[in-house]
Amino acid sequence: MAVQAPEAAPPPRAPAVRPRRKLTGYWLILPGALWLGLFFVVPFYSLLATSLYDPNGSVLGGYDMTYHFANFVDAIKDYWEPLLRSLGYAGIATLICLVLGYLLAYAIAFKGGRWRTLLLVLVIAPFFTSFLLRTLSWKLILADDGFVVDALQSVHILGADDRLLATPVAVIAGLTYNFLPFMVLPLYASLEKIDGRLIEAAGDLYASPVRAFFKVTWPLSLPGVVAGTLLTFIPAAGDYVNAQLLGNPNTRMAGNVIQDLFTKTSDYAAAGALSVILMLIIVGMVMAYVRTAGTEDLV
């Protein structure tokens, strides 16, 4: 119900009312398109402009447009660490989400039976509790005297003085948790469409279950894998709430820096530049990824 990969829609059939080239279509799409144009597309232009302002401007004195491209160089020089952390943390969280999400989506699609709908509702149910409250709960679960740390210490995975809270592990755990449903839903949409007879056929042809999985199920689920990893990676890379609540000053991600530059130090030019860089990196990675994965009909 929530996030469905666009390609998850059932194949189009001939609608009763045949599409007509009349003005009605324009009138229907116009209000929504206008809203997105004004408040989604135009802002990108504003952001780009902001990123080229004179970095010496201030809120009171105003900002001069000086086409200061050096803002980008400065932003990378000053903030390459949070940028790399954003990509790294989001990348690791996405991989873990893929493993966990695949298990869950597979279980629901192939073993769910008549419980499928209920199980899917359960997958999106966490969305109905505040994102911030769920993240704060992890603070409690991973706390120094909490049972997770105790358990890990008793099996000597963690030393007596080691902790989880305020470490990169906690930040990645938080990211994994928060964006897992975004992985499960598109994976499920893909897996559910697979004809079970194909997998049976592989078995009949003496493929082991593992081999059948990698030769049949996995390739057929690739559109879901691509959509799911994108829907997980992109918000995770831009997130700063997990790093703020579960991390420490050394786990700051690009989002934390952008947020602070905008709201605390009012350094709009640098904030704009960093925002543009983050967007460009993500768009670049997404395009490269989609090309290698070979699902260009994603949009």
């Binding site: 989604f40 802002p43 952001l47 831009g238 709009y268 983050l278």
Partner: peptide
């Protein structure tokens, strides 16, 4: 919009409102 990081959408909108 579903595929853009919130921080980028948020800061773009803020840039627009400020300008």
């Amino acid at each position: 919009p579903m595929a853009s990081p919130e921080i980028v959408m948020g800061s773009s909108l803020l840039a627009l409102f400020l300008s």
